[in-house]
Amino acid sequence: MTSSRLVLDEFIPYRLSVTSNLVSDSIARAYESLFGLTIPEWRLVAVVAETGGITQQAIGMRTRMDKVTVSRAAIALVDRGLLARRANAEDRRSHLLELTDAGRDLYAAVAPKALDLESRIFAAFDPQEVAQFMAMLRRIESVALSIGG
């Protein structure tokens, strides 16, 4: 990090991206084969499950996914009967997304698998290392947001 010469393999943003892609790809394969979900679709299901009713714009802000990705995932999930749209009393230009009964059932089936995958990925680390890693990720997010991320 102190060198003035860029070595891509040692560039932390690059390492974060590569690692994130590897983890996401392995999880995506599992979600796709088990539940027919893409990563953006799963993120929407999870966020909606955690929040109850939420707008697509709020999902984008929370997950850092772009508008088009959120919209496509929402359309696919509504078409599959996993999400429902209802009027947003606070803003008539937007809708709130909510899980349907089928969406809640799907979430109940996927969430344990997600936790199992996370557990398998981090099994080689002690809990204190994982806690420190999470704290560092949150600090990195905060700094990135403060510099215009």
Rank of each mutant, 00 (worst) to 15 (best):
M1R: 13
M1L: 10
M1N: 09
M1D: 08
T2P: 03
T2D: 08
S3P: 05
S4P: 06
S4H: 07
V7D: 11
L8A: 00
L8P: 01
D9H: 09
D9Y: 11
F11A: 04
P13L: 02
Y14R: 14
R15Y: 10
S24E: 13
D25L: 11
A28N: 07
A30S: 15
E32Q: 14
E32C: 13
E32V: 13
S33F: 12
G36I: 00
L37M: 07
L37D: 00
T38C: 04
L44H: 02
V45W: 06
V47R: 14
V47M: 15
V48I: 10
T51L: 08
I54T: 09
I54A: 06
T55Y: 14
T55P: 11
G60R: 07
T63E: 01
M65Q: 05
D66Q: 05
K67T: 11
V68S: 13
V68C: 12
T69V: 00
T69R: 02
V70A: 01
A74M: 10
I75F: 12
L77V: 02
L77C: 00
R80W: 01
G81F: 10
L83Y: 02
L83N: 01
L83M: 02
R85I: 10
R86A: 02
R86L: 03
R86Y: 04
N88I: 06
N88C: 09
D91H: 04
R93S: 12
R93L: 01
S94D: 02
L96H: 02
E98F: 03
E98A: 03
D101T: 12
G103P: 03
R104N: 03
R104S: 04
L106S: 13
L106P: 08
A109Q: 07
A111M: 15
K113V: 15
D116L: 15
E118M: 12
E118P: 14
S119W: 12
I121L: 15
I121G: 10
F122R: 05
F122I: 13
F125Y: 08
Q128K: 15
E129M: 12
A135C: 03
M136L: 14
L137W: 04
R139W: 03
I140P: 01
I140C: 01
S142C: 08
S146L: 01
S146C: 01
G148F: 08
